[in-house]
């Protein structure tokens, strides 16, 4: 086990005393196999207990330690120190307001997530005795990758359209809507379309593709959004040119 001194440059902000954020430098003795989150934990425990940041699982499942590391949205628990040379710059997730230090205000995302109904809306009410809603492996595979989303919001930090147009519902929420739309047991697509096919929905996406590049779970939100655009376009033509085909 070898050790090295890592220079961390962390964006600090205290809303009670600071007019704007500033960088603070820490020299942290780190083990080679540590991730950025380990270094932050060491700072908190041994150097500066006032440093605030979110984390929980330390294994890329909970999605709470998203932050900008050298300008790139990353999970701090998945960003290995050995991948970086020199000073490592750590900032709160881009495109979200800073609550304190590395902690951001995520209410906007939570509100949008609720709007798209990211849960199964059964086609019809069915008594429990009727049994499970069954699904073939092919039907499962159709949407499986989107279930891997951990709501870490790295895709929002990477999305320039979300930065420029804050009302945009954004990558994760729309791909989760798509996940349920693609589910053979679901009947809620029309309700979700009211949100994701609106002016604040998928049409604000210009397919930059950054969301998919930064996703730590290898979900492809950019793909989901293009599929939603195509499906919504087909819908539009059906509704306007063939009104009799209304389902």
């Amino acid at each position: 086990m070898s050790e090295r001194i890592v220079e961390l440059e962390v964006l600090r902000f205290n809303p009670e005393t600071d007019a704007e954020p500033r960088f603070q430098r820490y020299s942290v003795p780190c083990m080679n196999e540590w991730v950025v989150l380990d270094a932050l934990n060491h700072v908190k425990e041994a150097i500066d207990p006032t440093l605030s940041y979110r984390w929980s699982c330390h294994m890329a499942v909970c999605g709470s330690c998203g932050m900008m590391i050298n300008g790139e949205p990353k999970l701090a628990c998945k960003a290995f120190l050995r991948a970086y040379d020199g000073v490592i710059r750590v900032e709160p997730l881009a495109n979200f307001p800073i609550q304190r230090d590395l902690v951001t205000v995520i209410d906007d995302f939570i509100t949008k997530l609720k709007r798209v109904k990211p849960y199964l809306v059964p086609k019809s009410d069915q008594p429990v005795e009727a049994g499970e809603f069954r699904q073939t492996p092919a039907e499962l595979k159709r949407y499986k990758q989107y279930t891997l989303c951990i709501n870490c919001m790295l895709c929002y930090a990477a999305c320039p359209e979300y930065a420029l147009v804050p009302k945009f519902i954004g990558p994760a929420a729309i791909s989760l809507a798509h996940r349920y739309n693609e589910d053979s047991r679901d009947g809620g697509r029309e309700e979700r379309q009211q949100e994701i096919a609106s002016g604040e929905g998928v049409w604000e996406c210009s397919f930059v593709g950054a969301c998919s590049e930064v996703c730590p779970e290898h979900v492809d939100p950019a793909g989901a959004l293009q599929q939603v655009k195509i499906r919504s376009t087909v819908d539009w033509y059906q509704e306007h040119l063939m009104p009799w085909s209304k389902k």
């Binding site: 009211q194 096919a197 609106s198 002016g199 929905g201 049409w203 376009t233 819908d235 539009w236 033509y237």
Partner: peptide, 15 residues
Amino acid sequence: MAKSNKPIVWGLFAA
């Protein structure tokens, strides 16, 4: 919210 009419222009863009 109302659905957008962007599909008209987007459909032509994609084609």
